[in-house]
């Protein structure tokens, strides 16, 4: 098996995650889909690291994880406070930008 297949898998996971973001209305699920996309990217980075024979890809994946952790903390805090004020976790309810 060619290790390139890992990249195909990463692309597939990324696409599934992106589509999930667009389809789901529950903010928490949307957030999970974003995490899925990030993980797909991480997988690609790790495979790239193997491809090039150095550890830089892994470093990037590591940093991505750190940033993702920070993002999750803040994002979930936002969702909780949003739910507190609106009693809803639907992303469609936050459509005040409409005329």
């Amino acid at each position: 098996m060619n290790p390139v297949n890992y990249l195909y898998l990463a692309a597939l996971l990324f696409t599934i995650g992106a589509t999930g973001v667009l389809i789901r209305r529950n903010a928490i699920v949307v957030f999970m889909c974003i995490e899925l996309m990030l993980n797909a990217c991480n997988l690609a980075f790790v495979v790239f690291s193997r491809m090039h024979g150095n550890l830089d890809g892994q470093i990037i994946a590591f940093f991505t994880m750190v940033v993702a952790a920070a993002e999750v903390v803040v994002g979930l805090a936002i969702i909780v406070s949003l739910f507190r004020s609106r009693h809803s976790a639907s992303v469609d309810d936050a459509s005040l930008m409409k005329l």
Partner: peptide, 17 residues
């Protein structure tokens, strides 16, 4: 054109995607 601006974040996300 206004209908495109429906205020739903998901619609905008589709455009972005």
């Amino acid at each position: 054109l206004r209908k495109l601006q429906n205020g739903y974040a998901r619609s905008y996300a589709v455009s972005m995607f």
